[in-house]
Every structure is written in C-alpha cells, then in structure tokens.
Design a protein around this nucleic acid. Sequence first.
RNA 1: GGGGCGGUGGCGAAAUGGCAGACGCAGCGGACUUAAAAUCCGCUGGGGUGAUCCCCGUGUGGGUUCGAGUCCCACCCGCCCUACCA
Length: 937
Amino acid sequence: MHAYDFRVIERKWQAYWADRQTFRTPDPGEPGFDAGRPKSYVLDMFPYPSGKGLHIGHPLGYIATDIVARYRRMRGFNVLHPMGFDAFGLPAEQFAVEHNVHPRITTERNIETMVGQLKLLGLSYDWDRAIQTTDPAYYRWTQWIFLQLYASWFDPAAGRARPVDDLTAELAAGRWHVAAGGALVLPGDPEGRPWADLDPAARRAAVDGQRLAYLAEVPVNWCPALGTVLANEEVTSEGRSERGNFPVYRRPLRQWMLRITAYAERLLADLDDVDWPEPVKLMQRNWIGRSTGAHVDFPVDGTDAVITVFTTRPDTLFGATYMVLSPEHPLVDRLTTPDRRAEVDAYRAAAAGRTEIERQAEAKVKTGAFTGAHAVNPASGERIPIWIADYVLMGYGTGAIMAVPGHDGRDFDFARAFGLPIVAVVRPDDAWLAEQAAVAGRPGGLGDYLAHIAEYPEPFTGAGVGVNSANAEVSLDGLATADAKRAITAWLAASGRGRAHVQYKLRDWLFSRQRYWGEPFPILHGPDGEIRPVDAADLPVTLPDMDDFQPEGSDDPDAPPRPPFGRAPEAWRRVTIDGRAYERELNTMPNWAGSCWYYLRFIDPHNADALVDPARERYWMAGHGVDLYVGGVEHAVLHLLYARFWHKVLYDLGHVSTPEPFGRLFNQGYIQAYAYTDRRGVYVPADEVEERDGAFFHAGEPVRREYGKMGKSLKNMVTPEDIVERYGCDTLRLYEMYLGPLDASKPWSTRDIVGVSRFLNRVWRAFVDEATGDLRVVDAPAGADLERALHRTIAKVTDDLDGLRFNTAIAALIELTNALTALDALPRPVAAPLCLMLAPLAPHLAEELWQRLGHAESIAYAPWPAYDPALLVEDAVEVVVQVLGKVRGRVVVPAGFDAAAVEAAVLADDRIRAHIAGRPVRKVVVVPGKLVNIVTG
RNA sequence: GGGGCGGUGGCGAAAUGGCAGACGCAGCGGACUUAAAAUCCGCUGGGGUGAUCCCCGUGUGGGUUCGAGUCCCACCCGCCCUACCA
C-alpha cells in the first residue's frame, strides 16, 4: 500500500526541520543573513502556560500566523516568527498554593506540555528565540525598563519623556517653577515658586512628583480575598475581581503608579497611524476618554476655599443651581457645618462601606447629603448649596461638579429627588419641545418650558441656543451652544475664574501587586523615606527563595495588605549600601509587565548587555514595528495600551526606533462548541451525544444543547492531540482555517473534518499511484483549460493569503484538485505550483510531494508560483441577460466585444426578444464581460 | 442608558452594487464490490410544472438604483464592549 500516511510524513518532516534548523532566523550581521530581502515580523500574542493544556480553539491564531510566515518566506521575506510564554501570574501561584509546589516548577512543567502541543502542529517558530517572562535573564530587563520609567519625567513642553536629570537642571536654571500641588508651571505663574526658594525636601518631592513611576497614596481596589490590590482594569463592572470573582473595596494605599496619563494624547492620536481593527481602536479611544471643556472655580461662601469643577458644558454655567462633591472629596470635612455634621458623616461612612456592586445596584436612586455650606456661582453671583453624593466620583475630573439640573440627566434626577431649583439656560429645538410637552401633558411653547421646566419629563441635554445667561460682563443669550462655550470660556479665563481644560478618563496605572509570583521591584527603601533604585549593574533582583509564598487573603475588608515578600529571608529583604540600611520593596509588578515589551526581546533574546541590540531592533521593527500581530480581542485595551505606553517611553528615551510597536493588528475569532446537559442539568460528554431528527440524546436520554466556550467543565473539549492522531496535523491546520473567516467566531464540528481530510487524500492520489507508489507526474504541458484553471487558482490563492482569507484560498485549491481527478497523469507544470501553494497550509504533505518531485531542498524557501495575467482572460465570455432586472438568458460573445456589439448580439437573441415581447426598449445597461440589463417601457 | 459587530439552504460558509448559495459537511440516487468501508459520478434553497419554463427567496418594513445580501432610514433578534466620566 502506498496510501497517504500522514503519521509517517508528519513525523519525518518535523524531524527534518528540527535537525536542519530550517526555521532558525539569522539576524543582520550573522552568516546566512540576506540583507537584500525585505523583512516581516509575524507575531502571536504569547500565551500564559496554563495547566489545563491547549484545546482546539487556542491554536487558531498560531496556525494563521504560521501560514503567513511560511507564505512570506516563499515570497522572499526574511521572516521573524517567534514564540514564548507569559508565565508570571496568579493562576500559577494559586495552583502552587493548592498543591504545595513552587510556582516555578508548575510553570516549567506547563510550558513543557505546551511546547509539546505546539510542536505537534508543525509551526515554523524559531524556537531558539523562545523566552519566558519568569526567566531572571528576561525580567532583569523588565526591571531595567522600570528603572527607566523611574528616572524619567514627561516634559509637557516637548510632549515627550526625558531623563529626570534634565528636569533638575531646568528647574535649577529657572525654566520651571513649582506650584503648590507639585505641578510644573511657567515662571510667570502666580502659583509657582522658584527652585531656589524650595528646601531639599520640597525639591525632592517636586522631582519625585514628575517621575513616570511614582509612589502615591491612592484609593485602590483592595481585594482582601486575594490579598492584593487590583488595577481598575482587573475589576469587573460588578465590582468584583476578574479572577475569582471576589468582592473588591476602595481604600487608600501607598502604591507604585505609572504615569500613563501623560501619554493620553499621544496614545489617542497615534491610533490613526496603525492598521488595527476599527473596534479595537474605538475601545482604546473610549478607554482614554478625551473630553474637552473647562475648569471653573467656585468660591465657597464665607471662606477662602475654592472648589474647582470640570465641565464639558461651561455654556450652562448660569444654570448651575447647586454643587456636588464626591463623598471622598478632601474639602468635605472643612465645609460641613456643625448642624449637618452627623448626616454628612453618616452618608460618607455608608458610601465607603458599600462595595462597587452595591453602589451599582442603587445607581438609579439618587442619594446625597447637604453639607450646610454654599458656593457662589461665578457667572450669576447666586449663592448655591453644596451637597455630597456618590454619583460624583473622586476618580474623575476634580471630584466635584457644578450641577445643572436643567440640562443634565443625573443632576435633573438629583434635583427632583431633593427639591433643588431647576432653571433653563439653553433653548431646545421646537421638535423636542413639542414632543416633551406632549409627554408631559403641557401646553407647550418656549414660554411654558422656561417657566415650568421642572414639570417636563426629562432635561434637554443637546445643543441649542443660550437663554437666561447674562451678567454685566458676558452674555450667552442667543448664542448657539458651541459659540456659547467659546464665549464663556474666554470670559472665565479673562476674569481668572476658570480656564479651558481637556480631561481624560484614563487613570494612571496602578503597578503594585501583593504577590509572590511576579517581578520584584528594583527599589530600596531607606530609613528616612529615601527611595533608592537598584543599580542597573546589580540587576536582576531575583525572587527570594521561600517555602511559604502564599498571599494572605482575608474576609475582613479592613485587613492590611501583607505582601508575601514580607516573610522573605532577612538576607534578601535587608541591604546595606555605604553603611545605610535599606529594605527592599515588598510588592511585585503586575503580570502585564512582562508582556509589555516581549516583542522586543524576541529580536535579540540572548543579549546580556542590552534589552535589544539597536541595529537588530532597527532592522526587525523597521517601518511600522511588528508587521502582523494576531491575538484575541480580549486584549483590546489592557495589554495593547500598556505595551504602547512602554514602547513610547522607550522611543522617547531612544531605545527603540518606532513610535508604535504593532503596525498591524488582527483579532482572530473564537472556536466555540456545543455542550449538552441532561435532565438534571449536568453536562454529559459531548462526543457521546447522538442527533436524531433534530433532537439530541445521550445514552438514550434526551439532552439539551448549549453553545459556548470549549472546556473541561462543559465536557466538550477537543484537543489538538485527538485530531492530529486521527487525521494528522495538516488536516487539522486546514480544517481550522477552512471553518470560516479568521476573525469570525465559529462552532467546532469534528464531523466536518473529513472534508479537508478527503481533499488532502485526493491531492496525494493526484501525485502518487496508490497501487505502486509511483509518481503520477508527467513532463507534459497541461491542457489549455487546465492551465487557465491553474493560473486562476494561483491568482486567487495569492490574493487570499495576502488578505488572510484562508478559507477561500483552500476552497480554490480544492476546486483545482477536483479538476485533476479525471486526469490519467498529472502534468508537472500543474503539480509543482499546486505543491507550492499547499506548502504554507499543509506543509508536511507539501514537503513530501516536493521531495518526490525530485527536489533536494525543503519547500520552505522555494519561490511562490507566479501567474500569467494573460491566462486569466477568457476568449469568450458568457454574458447574463436581464430584462427589467430579471435573468432571462445568457449569450456567449467574444471577449473583445464592445458595449454596442454586445447590445446588438443580445437584442438579436430570439429568447430575449420573446421576453421583451414587443415593448419599447427604453434603455440598455451593458456591464462589459458580465451582464446586460434591458429596460423596457 | 451609550457604543460596536453580526443575522444568507438542514449545518459551516461564498458572493469589487451585476447569474445568491462557490467550497465543504450532512442527505438522496448511481458506479465499483459477494458485501461493507474507501473511492468515483450525479442531484441537493422553497413552491409550481411532463420536458421546458415560471413564481418566491439573504431577520422585518421602507428608500436610493436599470439592478441591492451588499448602499441609506426605521425596527426586531443575537453577541461583545462600556456604564452616574460631569
């Protein structure tokens, strides 16, 4: 027998590639490097080495990038296609705690399993470049980048990061003054004080306050059950931890922060320069959340305190009838009058004790408390009450608002709940007025609206025309909202009562975690609060050896954080330098840190002197950085935003050559699967379920079908090993790609695999006589039709692979192969291109057939077949003929016929004439080579 | 509440505004076989019809166009993101 034996073939070629190092990629300057070729960096989002192993859905993107990498090698590119592991993180730590094994051991074991599974798929990674974020040789550079962040500040004038030493020099030279809050201001600013007037502590605070990595006492998401704080992005909208779904509480803690907000504008603007899916760009834009408006200062009546608010609607300032502070606002204590003290304190305590989920549930009902204090509306001069309410968040803007109940839904609800005055300062359009009046059962008209705004069901929040908005110096009456905004902002600025402001939703990145299994900070704490970065030469700061690395979880929301490093050996914790005793930073970095820059390390993974060699970085990142980055949408915001931020800092400091890391991003869809539950609601093994007449049965009992993720718990998991064993890896690769478009989610169906399996068998039989094992290939030209079909296929497959449309590329190859089955022998001019086109998709089979065609070298670097455009044009074309848009016949005309000739030929056709049925022909639309539409009267 | 993506045969899916359903699965019929598997050939959206041909058909209702699965408007359904962001 000489049938297609995928087991033998796949084992043979995987061994061949490994032995010959077929996919080892030489770098610039190395032997074998060809500078004459263009480069292509094809990257997967590297995985977390989970203990559960891969199921059939995980490698979807890896197969796709492998096809692209192989295709581009054949197109003459130098291709960088690496793989590694994002191995720090909570699951490994939790598993380690449960099973009392060191996370390093479980991590190593998981990686080994995963590498084995990946190698089974015949992926053409350069495995010499494999990296693990947990390797001290790797996280040494993660720590090094942190030191760069610590030693840098964001120069607002230059719009980029610069070394902190430059800042000190500029302060000393008087270029900047320092305002009360530590902000840098220009020398003319009345708030600023010159460097010379500052004492050493103030100077240090001023500089530390500008660093891109800084310590701050901030309200954080404290998760007692996990024993750690979490980033906003790790907390669900229900106010629970994304991992484990435990309650999360807000409380102030001193933590490391990264100043990503300094880059908000550039992170937003540079999205225009990358080729990414529009939804991902949109998610990032929303996350950054830029809004323009103004800061407005409200003096507090009877004190010298000023409450500054941010508003996007300064044009409604005359309608601000009260103010609201967040319950956590620092001025609340000072403002509250003695008679309101008890109520305010009770409200604040209740707000602090509520979890996010509870606040969420009560969001529809407005609650609050009056402080007893009043502010003065700077435009109207009115005395307005100051309230606190938890609908105002401390984390956004200034933590205080001016409430304009006439033109804001939340303020409107609040004002109605507490009987606060509502006035109209924007005139709505007539349609809105009429509609709302009808709903309210009011007579309608502008006069009624202005007099009885509180009786209307909802406030007008759109753009209109100003009314009731004038004082002695400025009038917004009659101005359209956009003009009114400009006018009032100009007046605020001129009179010193406010200024234009751009506000971002993006917050600084909370960078501390109370965990063991993460990168230690390269930071030492001195006895007097001194912060001393570890000398770069002393990196890495390795993880301490510990037997008990368990985070201390608690049910008590008030329990203090106890990082595991607090129990590390003295010898690790205490460091003496020049006679001064330091204690190491006890927190670790979040597990996003390692994935922020791994794509750079792949370029130069073994470099002991730099995170990446500049010449290699310039070569592989040339153009727009990574040329194709494939991964799931779940990383749309966090990973991709953090990595862009780090990259921009490294760019500003001259360590990388491009402003953006990932020039092109593609999100692969998910492979989902059916799962089945029996009468008790228990999952039954999906592969034992039978379908009969549209219903589903397990062991004779009816079961209910669900659709969702693949996994052990749903008993619907299919592993790559299962499929490779039964059908071979080439079939698996082909099937995953044939399932549908790469970016779509689609259901797995093991039953359908036979289709592509049959296809590969047909390819085999086209090349090899199964009875004799002889090659069926002959050195004879292909017939004209077959030649034409071949060239059409090459054109189609080339175009489809360029566009990542693997499903239709495979369909085209199936069609071509189906045309070969009737042939007695396979002409070599068809056999070779078919083999080449198959090589990226089903590389093992292609290698085997290529070798049998007589080639001594691997097909991996053989040139991609070209097509002859002349052969894509038919001699004669069949033109569809429509009468009044309905297909009524077909006419074959020579390809060269012009519109008039086609029209004449069509109108001469008897059957078409019959359909025209003597009616006058009003118009004839001719689409050359395609279609004719006859419009009759 | 706001935003995004999608809805095409029994199933997965194709289709630069130009023959809807390529290709595959499943199904039906046939060839080969003692038989089965494998393989090969044919049919396969629905309805009517002797052939032939006709009518209907891309979630629903409108619109633009000689012509709409594709573009526009409104609505229904599903999935995803986001959510008191001032």
